[in-house]
Simulated assay, not measured.
Amino acid sequence: MCGTLFTRLSSCLGKKICSLFAKSAFFKIWFLPVWCLLGVSKVFILRIKFFRMEKFLGRKLGESVLVPLLDSKQKSRAIQVGHVVRVVSNYTPWKSNCFPQALTALLILRLYRVPYLLSFGLRRCASTGDCQAHVWLVAGPVCVTGGYGFSSYAMVGCYLSPHINIDSIESKNC
C-alpha cells in the first residue's frame, strides 16, 4: 500500500518537475518571485484600506475605459506575465483569486513598462441575488489576469498605467 502511494506521489512530482523544466526561461525565472508576490499582494489586500491602495494602482479613470495599445514586444511580454501569474496562483497554499493575481501582474508589467488597464466590476448573481466583485487586468488586446470582464460585469472603476500621458489623448478627443 505505502509502496504504491509513494510511487504515485513520486510519479506525480516527477511529472510536475518535468513540466517545469519544459517551461520558458521567463517562466522559470519568475516562478518563485511571482509566488512570493502573490503572498505579499494577498497580505496587502487584507491589511491596507482601499483608499490608501488606490494611488499605487495607477491613474484613476473612474468608470471610463481606455485600453492602451501595445507594440509586439509589449504584447508578448503581457502574454508571458499573464501565463506565469495564472499558473503560479494554482500553487499557493492561500487563495490567489483575481485581485492578488491582478496586483502581482501589475507590478511585473510596471517593471517592464508595459501599459495596462486595471478594472473593477460588479454583477448580481441571478440565483442568489448576491453581488459578485471581480478584478481583471488587460494590456492592449491581452487579458493578462481575470479574463475579459467588460461584458460580464458593471464597471465601478478603472486604473491606467501611470506612465501613459493621458492628457495628450484627452486633448485630441476634444
Rank of each mutant, 00 (worst) to 15 (best):
M1N: 08
C2D: 14
L5Y: 04
T7S: 01
R8V: 04
R8F: 04
S10T: 04
S10W: 06
S11F: 04
L13V: 11
K15P: 02
K15F: 05
K16N: 13
I17F: 12
C18V: 15
S19T: 12
K23M: 11
S24N: 08
S24P: 02
F27S: 00
F27T: 01
K28W: 03
I29R: 14
I29A: 10
W30K: 03
F31K: 00
F31E: 00
W35Y: 11
W35K: 04
W35P: 09
L37D: 02
G39V: 11
G39H: 01
S41Y: 10
K42D: 07
K42V: 09
I45C: 05
L46K: 15
I48N: 09
K49S: 12
F51G: 10
M53K: 08
M53W: 10
K55S: 14
F56C: 13
L57P: 09
G58F: 09
R59I: 08
K60G: 07
S64C: 12
S64P: 07
V67M: 05
V67C: 10
L69W: 13
L70M: 09
L70I: 04
D71P: 06
D71A: 06
K73W: 15
Q74K: 02
K75P: 02
R77P: 07
R77N: 09
I79M: 13
V81P: 02
V81E: 00
G82F: 05
H83C: 12
V84A: 09
V84S: 02
V85P: 06
V85T: 01
R86S: 15
R86F: 09
V88Q: 03
T92E: 06
N97Q: 13
F99T: 08
P100N: 08
Q101C: 05
A102N: 00
A102G: 03
T104N: 08
A105P: 09
L107H: 06
L107S: 12
L109Q: 04
R110H: 11
R113I: 05
V114H: 04
V114Q: 07
P115A: 07
P115S: 10
Y116W: 10
Y116A: 00
G121K: 01
T128Q: 04
T128W: 04
D130Y: 13
C131D: 12
Q132E: 13
Q132P: 03
W136C: 00
W136G: 01
V138F: 10
V138R: 12
V138P: 00
A139Y: 05
G140K: 07
P141Y: 06
P141T: 10
C143V: 02
V144L: 02
T145F: 05
G146W: 02
G149L: 04
F150Q: 05
S152K: 13
S152H: 05
M155P: 13
M155K: 15
C158M: 06
Y159F: 13
Y159S: 11
L160W: 06
L160T: 00
S161M: 08
P162E: 02
I164K: 07
N165H: 09
N165C: 15
N165G: 09
D167C: 11
S168L: 12
S168P: 11
I169N: 10
E170H: 14
E170Q: 14
N173S: 15
N173I: 14
C174A: 14
C174Y: 15
